[in-house]
Computed example of a mutant assay.
Amino acid sequence: MKLQAALDTLTLEQCIELLQETGHSVDIAEVGTPFIIEQGMAPVRVLKERFPHIEVLADAKIMDAGEFEADKCFEAGADIVTVLGVSYDETIEGVVRSAKKHGKKVMVDMIAVQDLAKRTREIDQMGVDYICVHTAFDIQSTGQKDPLEELKVVNQVIEHAQSAVAGGVKLSTIDAIAREGAAIVVVGGAICNAASRSETAREMKRHLQEENA
């Protein structure tokens, strides 16, 4: 299982500092959507240059012009690009074409998908690499969504892609998620806001490795 650090609200300098502290544990550095809105592809380029051993995910949440927008992300150095599961099939297929052209990967973000099992089955046939259940930031405190239960739904359905989970993952919940199994576990605030980011990332990675042993 890979540990992905979601970098959403930090400055580029703070992100570099965090990855210097946690790079021994973090497999994927996510340039989050707020970060992209603020600074475009610049953080993708810089982080890939500074940390070539870490995969960089551009959380572009593509919803239209799939191939064109994915091209821009991959050309900037992204290893993985996100597209929304609620997008048209043609958009997702365009992102897949771009990824194959560049030798990179696609993660489909299932945020706001209503019929998770049905849409997962459809997307799983499109050649994507990861299907990610995502509890939206805006509803994490409401208890409307359970990332573990949604992860179980995806794991029961997928035949080709691998699963991923994001949204509110913390040390107290990571064991249950790891037991269910996901190729990628995305952690944001639990690492970025920790008193010791290095130790927290190390501990989370240890939990994932133990469950995967």
Rank of each mutant, 00 (worst) to 15 (best):
D89M: 09
S25H: 06
V96F: 02
L148S: 03
V186S: 08
L7M: 12
R179M: 10
A136H: 14
L7R: 06
G23S: 09
P147G: 14
T22M: 06
S25A: 06
K72P: 13
S141F: 12
Q209K: 08
K101A: 07
A183C: 03
A78C: 01
E211C: 07
Q209F: 08
V128W: 05
D89N: 10
I177M: 11
F137T: 15
Q14H: 02
A164N: 00
E21T: 11
Q162E: 12
E211Y: 11
V157D: 07
V83M: 00
M1V: 07
I139K: 10
D64K: 06
D115F: 06
F74C: 05
E67D: 15
V81E: 02
T11I: 00
P43W: 04
R121K: 14
E67T: 02
K72A: 14
L12G: 04
G23R: 14
L84Q: 02
T33K: 12
T173G: 03
N212G: 14
H160P: 07
H53L: 10
M204K: 08
E211H: 12
V153F: 07
A190F: 09
T33Q: 11
G66W: 04
L151Q: 08
V185K: 01
E122A: 10
D79M: 04
S198H: 05
M126K: 13
A176F: 15
S163E: 00
G167N: 11
L18P: 13
D89E: 08
S163F: 04
T200A: 10
E93Y: 03
V108M: 07
V133S: 13
A117K: 08
E21W: 02
D146E: 12
L148N: 05
E55I: 10
V81Q: 00
D79C: 00
T120N: 12
L171I: 08
C192R: 10
V154D: 11
M110H: 11
F137I: 14
V113A: 02
S25W: 09
C132G: 06
K101I: 10
A70G: 01
